[in-house]
Design a protein around this nucleic acid. Structure first.
Lengths: 113, 113
DNA sequence: CTGTATCCTTGGGGATACTG
DNA sequence: CAGTATCCCCAAGGATACAG
């Protein structure tokens, strides 16, 4: 999980924001998080439609990274045709909650713009 | 200020997180925000030291973007040698507050790791 | 349907030198 | 001190084709 090479210290304690930024740093990750929050347990194809503009390759790689980071879990059903469902882990849900104030800030900002 | 070309809608309302992500998207921006939060009204050179690893060019361009986004304000004193101070605007402070839960999430995560 | 495999492009950021 | 000006690089993403 590639530790940050930036100290990000102040007054002797770590700020922690850099850790979070690495996890949500991918171009579409917060959007995937948001989609999974509003539409729990979504399939690959549905996710692709829920995040317009993303390509299959990027969606797949982002999902794998998010899985490795423990914020998304993947359940593959052994069927034909294949079926896979993605959902948020507990930690992913907590991340989403932690993201809410930031989202609110963005919403206020686009309103007053 | 380059509007996102991503809809980021769900259930009919905009999520807003994409707006925020554009503002804090630069590689070092959250660190600059954090530094300015812990050390208000800092000079260019001080900031450079407070954010170890950043180059002058990138610090300057990030500061300019953050200024354009209205989260940082720049005060130049007409002296010799030149002296410039950077600080957070009201909106920048609110952004920092909105970032705190995310920072907490990151802190918890590095602890349990 | 759920993905890989390839190939290619772009721009954000790094290194360095220079200036008012 | 507080920045520009250049040049360069590379990894994150995009487009497209193919596979189990």
């Amino acid at each position: 999980m590639a530790t940050a090479n930036r100290p990000c210290v102040g007054g002797g304690h770590v700020c922690g924001i850099d850790v979070s930024m690495e996890v949500i740093g991918g171009k579409w990750k917060v959007l995937i998080l948001w989609a999974l929050h509003e539409h729990p347990r979504r399939r690959f194809g549905e996710l692709r439609r829920l995040v317009p503009g993303i390509t299959e390759k990027v969606l797949a790689s982002h999902l794998r990274e998010m899985e490795a980071d423990g914020i998304v879990d993947r359940v593959a059903y052994d069927e034909v045709p294949p079926r896979v469902e993605y959902g948020l882990t507990k930690d992913g849900m907590r991340l989403n909650v932690a993201l809410e104030p930031l989202a609110a800030w963005g919403r206020e900002r686009s309103q007053s713009a």
